[in-house]
């Protein structure tokens, strides 16, 4: 029981982070391998505001979100749009964007190392125990999970109900036809990239309340988010959430039953299994 609840709490945050990556990969068609660094940067911001001015991470989110949005929008326009424009094929864009986002990821790690140093950072926010279903959990985990649920819900509503959200989903399904019905693909791709980064950074701020981060942990989160996106299906919101909860459960189970050092290995095995059995994702239809 304990494992299940902890796993679900962790999975909720993974869902938020992976949703960010999925917006970028599914809609903007950029596999952003610097996604994890955006998460760490969000965590840094929360840490910094909390230790310097005692600002609650739940409020920091409102500062992190707009800054991350602008930053990611700039990254898309400055670095990625030229690649989209010059790419002769999907394959070439893929290679270019993999290399570029790896480059950006290393630059981000380098900058964060220069600013914050290589130390682990953690702070204690709401770290008193709360009793739930007969077991106790950190209040920070529960609060972060609730915040993640709210944000995920808002995002889902926006994607399914609003005009812009609908257009974004149209792009993910059929970019060429979306253009024909008058959707400004160029602008919306930038929008979903920026939005994806924002969601991830917000997730980072929330995760930092109970997970210890350091400047170079980003890549681990990128890997996990990728596993979730691929498992859940590219561009599939529902699949992302289910996959994230599964991964949260699996990791918590492996960490408590086998060895905490094996969480990434477990995520990786899951990824390989998905590749071999259902490369189209949990809910994806087989490609013909």
């Amino acid at each position: 029981m304990d494992v299940i609840v902890t796993g679900l709490l962790l999975g909720g945050l993974y869902a938020l982070v992976a949703m960010g990556l999925n917006l970028q990969y599914g809609m903007a068609r950029i596999m952003n391998l610097a996604n994890g660094e955006m998460l760490v940067a969000g965590g840094f911001a929360a840490f910094w505001f909390y230790t310097a001015a005692q600002v609650s991470p739940l409020l920091t989110v409102f500062i992190v979100a707009p800054v991350a949005f602008v930053l990611n929008w700039l990254i898309y326009v400055v670095f990625l749009r030229p690649l989209v424009a010059r790419a002769k094929s999907r394959g070439q864009l893929e290679v270019d964007s993999i290399l570029t986002t790896f480059g950006l990821s290393f630059v981000a790690v380098g900058l964060m190392l220069a600013v914050f140093g290589g130390d682990y950072f953690s702070y204690s926010y709401l770290s008193f125990p709360v009793s739930l279903l007969g077991d106790t959990y950190g209040a920070n985990r529960i609060v972060a999970f609730c915040a993640a649920v709210v944000i995920c819900g808002a995002l889902w509503l926006w994607l399914t109900q609003s005009r812009a959200g609908l257009s974004i989903r149209a792009i993910s399904v059929a970019p060429a036809s979306a253009r024909l019905v008058g959707i400004d693909v160029r602008r919306l791709a930038a929008l979903s990239f920026a939005l994806g980064g924002t969601v991830t950074a917000t997730g980072g701020a929330l995760i930092s309340t109970f997970v210890t981060l350091d400047a170079s942990t980003g890549v681990l989160f990128t890997l996990k988010a990728l596993v979730i996106v691929i498992m859940g299906g590219v561009g599939d919101v529902r699949g992302t959430i289910v996959a994230a909860l599964l991964l949260g459960l699996l990791e918590t189970f492996v960490a408590s039953v086998i060895d905490p050092g094996l969480t990434l290995a477990a995520a990786y095995l899951l990824f390989v299994l998905i590749l071999l059995v259902r490369p189209q994702g949990l809910f994806g239809r087989a490609q013909t």
């Binding site: 290399l99 290393f106 981000a108 790690v109 380098g110 190392l113």
Partner: peptide
Amino acid sequence: PNQTTLLLGVSFLVIVY
């Protein structure tokens, strides 16, 4: 020694662009 990561990142960007 702390700037090697940054160098790695910049090299990637130089190659692509």
